[in-house]
Amino acid sequence: MAIRLPDGATVAIATGYGAVKAVTSISNASPAVLTSTAHAVPNNSFFELKTPWQKISERIWKAANVAANTLEIAGTDTTDLNRFPASPTGSTLREITAWTQISQILDYQTSGGDQQFWTGSFLEDDYERQLPTVTSAQSITLGIGDDPTLAGYQALKLAGERRDIRALKVTLPDGSVLLYNGYVSFNESPTLTKGQVMQVTATFSLQGRPVRY
């Protein structure tokens, strides 16, 4: 048994991306190896992957065992040919080249991600049954101490205005990392509650499941 406190964790938004690079193949392996000519992604850096393999697409991954034209997608397992049939075409990657810390976070909440079910019964049944369908949309909401001069505030505001998809990185006190990818919305109108710190709200509407290292 092990439990931890999040005290001291830092949160950062991606504020720099490299050029989009074509991925010519992704292997059925654990971890999967992708081929991208002269991708220039450094070892242990993070990148966004888009691929017809939906289960690993629109997520942020770490590059490992990098070579000139290949890299391992750390933490993946694509050996199941039923879930990952044949090497997909039309995949792309883009390296994350810069992060900006979102400081003065007062509240960090997640919502969604729950399994949804079809519920029904046959004519002859006297009870209902359930079949799993999809998981509900997931989002992360940050309450941030209001200070428009902070770099994180400005990065969130810009991403919200552009309706950009941005990566979000949470670094826990033990060095482990949580990675998310989603549309940013930002409400720069602060709360005004007597005796309470003024705060603004940022929301990340996730496009894929989180990745953890």
Results as ranks from 00 to 15, higher is better:
residue 168 L to C: 00
residue 132 P to R: 12
residue 130 Q to N: 14
residue 165 I to A: 13
residue 134 V to S: 13
residue 179 L to Q: 01
residue 181 N to Y: 09
residue 178 L to T: 02
residue 128 E to L: 14
residue 127 Y to D: 14
residue 130 Q to K: 15
residue 148 P to K: 01
residue 158 L to T: 15
residue 178 L to H: 07
residue 139 S to A: 12
residue 171 T to D: 04
residue 149 T to M: 09
residue 128 E to Q: 14
residue 136 S to C: 09
residue 174 D to Y: 06
residue 181 N to F: 07
residue 165 I to Y: 14
residue 145 G to E: 02
residue 165 I to N: 13
residue 134 V to T: 15
residue 159 A to M: 03
residue 170 V to C: 06
residue 152 G to Q: 01
residue 136 S to A: 13
residue 167 A to F: 03
residue 153 Y to T: 04
residue 142 L to A: 04
residue 155 A to F: 05
residue 175 G to I: 05
residue 169 K to G: 04
residue 179 L to G: 04
residue 171 T to S: 08
residue 168 L to V: 02
residue 172 L to G: 00
residue 177 V to C: 00
residue 135 T to A: 14
residue 136 S to N: 11
residue 168 L to E: 04
residue 166 R to V: 01
residue 176 S to D: 10
residue 180 Y to P: 05
residue 157 K to Y: 13
residue 130 Q to G: 11
residue 126 D to E: 14
residue 129 R to H: 14
residue 131 L to C: 12
residue 147 D to H: 01
residue 164 D to W: 09
residue 179 L to I: 05
residue 143 G to V: 01
residue 146 D to G: 07
residue 178 L to Q: 09
residue 154 Q to R: 12
residue 162 R to P: 07
residue 163 R to H: 13
residue 180 Y to E: 05
residue 143 G to M: 05
residue 182 G to C: 06
residue 130 Q to W: 11
residue 132 P to H: 10
residue 128 E to W: 13
residue 161 E to V: 10
residue 180 Y to H: 08
residue 144 I to A: 00
residue 178 L to A: 08
residue 147 D to I: 04
residue 143 G to F: 04
residue 159 A to T: 05
residue 129 R to V: 14
residue 126 D to A: 12
residue 150 L to E: 04
residue 145 G to H: 03
residue 149 T to Y: 08
residue 135 T to K: 13
residue 173 P to Q: 07
residue 136 S to H: 10
residue 165 I to S: 11
residue 169 K to D: 01
residue 168 L to N: 02
residue 176 S to L: 10
residue 142 L to S: 00
residue 126 D to H: 13
residue 143 G to P: 05
residue 146 D to M: 10
residue 165 I to K: 11
residue 172 L to T: 06
residue 176 S to K: 12
residue 151 A to I: 02
residue 134 V to P: 08
residue 147 D to K: 03
residue 146 D to W: 12
residue 159 A to C: 06
residue 170 V to F: 03
residue 154 Q to L: 11
residue 152 G to H: 01
residue 156 L to Q: 02
residue 132 P to G: 13
residue 137 A to M: 11
residue 181 N to T: 06
residue 171 T to Q: 08
residue 181 N to L: 09
residue 160 G to L: 06
residue 141 T to S: 08
residue 136 S to K: 09
residue 172 L to R: 08
residue 164 D to V: 03
residue 130 Q to A: 15
residue 158 L to G: 08
residue 159 A to W: 00
residue 138 Q to C: 09
residue 148 P to G: 04
residue 151 A to D: 11
residue 172 L to V: 05
residue 139 S to G: 10
residue 180 Y to L: 06
residue 177 V to T: 01
residue 158 L to V: 13
residue 150 L to N: 03
residue 182 G to A: 07
residue 152 G to K: 02
residue 148 P to S: 06
residue 142 L to C: 00
residue 142 L to H: 03
residue 175 G to S: 08
residue 157 K to D: 11
